[in-house]
Design a binder for these strands. Structure first.
Lengths: 219, 219
DNA sequence: GAAAGGCATGTGACGTGGTCACATACGGTG
DNA sequence: CACCGTATGTGACCACGTCACATGCCTTTC
């Protein structure tokens, strides 16, 4: 698949912007690669073409929490932050799957911002979306119980077969808690019959019960 | 002081944008007024001219947490979110002092965004800044102890005389915890000799000790 | 100026959550 | 099979959030 085909995926982009972007070559990163880490300087604006990148905040004691996930067509806001505010990264981005992305250099980014309404909308939209989800995250972390967050996670990441393939450590990161807590909560939920779990897999048994847990402690 | 004088406070604004903004009339809001609340539709882009507005996220059980404070010359990002993403407010903004602000209607906002590089920079800059502080907030809430957050609050909100005029309930909101916890922590800090406290006032006694608490649990 | 009501604060009990220090258990590899 | 790295289970302990009150201080109102 060519890079030009990929620019088509970026919605609402006008022809001049597209032409400019097509002069840049995409970049392949393998699964597990770290795109940037705290303290690193900002190289440009990053747009994902394919794959899945997770952005995490890292705590002093090694605990980390998932800030947001970047899907194809979206951009990584961290880079925008750096470009606009001049600050360095404060989070770490990891490729969860092999990924393909374009890095728009600083000057090209600003040129596009001035010349292309479509590009502006893209950037602004991405910004607004991230901000929303960030506020959602704050809301969840500060007002929802671990049990509710875990139930929500299981519901929306499990496949149609009701299976969720994640280790407890990954789940802990995703909802911002410690692994041990996940272990105990899963036990409790399994005991109540709402899920089953074994090494690396959680299976939904009672979707209704989980929904109830989510809404019970949330609002 | 005229409204036109106020637009001068907004840094980096170009002449055409300024001219357009000067056609809008500013708005006065009294102390304690609620500028918007969760679920309300977005009326436009808001720029503060004077005063102090706090934006809080409200939890189901009445607990709330300070997302950010809007100072003169800054804009309230919540409104931008709504304008760009179409979503309604999810937080509540309260005037902590009497405030004066302009509301830029939706269409004017978009016109400015397309026509004025200066306005774009203003909006983008505000966005980036808020996003940064939002990530900082997540970091603090999830990785710092209550004691460290409290010490930090006392240090950076207390006047040159070392006095901080806030009730325990306000402090609790500011750092995202419960009032009772503040009560106990203040007692502990007072016992250790680092602060003194009475109804509505906390006084810094040992700045070094407080700094140590902040950095001790943070990084 | 005394009574009343509203805030601000102090306190104990209790459950949840995070951390530490381990003990298993499971899966692949040589 | 023995070994090793990773995933998971568990108990102890402390920090924090919540609930239910008890004071205590200040202002309003007769």
């Amino acid at each position: 698949m060519s890079w030009t085909e990929h620019t088509d995926q970026i919605a609402g982009l006008d022809a001049p912007a597209r032409a400019l972007l097509d002069t840049l070559s995409p970049m392949e990163v393998p699964k597990g690669a770290i795109l940037f880490c705290p303290g690193e300087a900002v190289k440009g604006y990053v747009v994902m073409l394919s794959g899945q990148v997770d952005v995490n905040l890292i705590g002093p004691n090694g605990r980390d929490i998932l800030l947001y996930r970047v899907a194809p067509g979206q951009s990584c806001i961290q880079s925008t932050l750096g470009l606009l505010g001049g600050d360095a990264y404060t989070a770490e981005a990891t490729a969860e799957t092999p990924a393909r992305l374009v890095l728009i250099p600083r000057d090209v980014f600003f040129a596009l911002l001035d010349s292309s309404p479509g590009f502006r909308r893209l950037v602004f939209g991405a910004f607004a979306e991230r901000m929303q989800s960030m506020m959602q995250l704050i809301e969840n972390v500060s007002f929802m119980s671990v049990e509710a967050r875990l139930a929500a996670l299981i519901l929306d990441r499990s496949g149609p077969d009701g299976c969720l393939h994640m280790t407890q450590a990954e789940m802990a990161t995703a909802i911002g808690t410690a692994r041990e807590v996940i272990s105990r909560r899963l036990d409790k939920m399994a005991h109540a019959g709402s899920v089953a779990h074994e090494r690396g897999v959680v299976t939904v048994l009672d979707r209704k019960a989980l929904n109830k847990i989510v809404s019970g402690t949330a609002f």
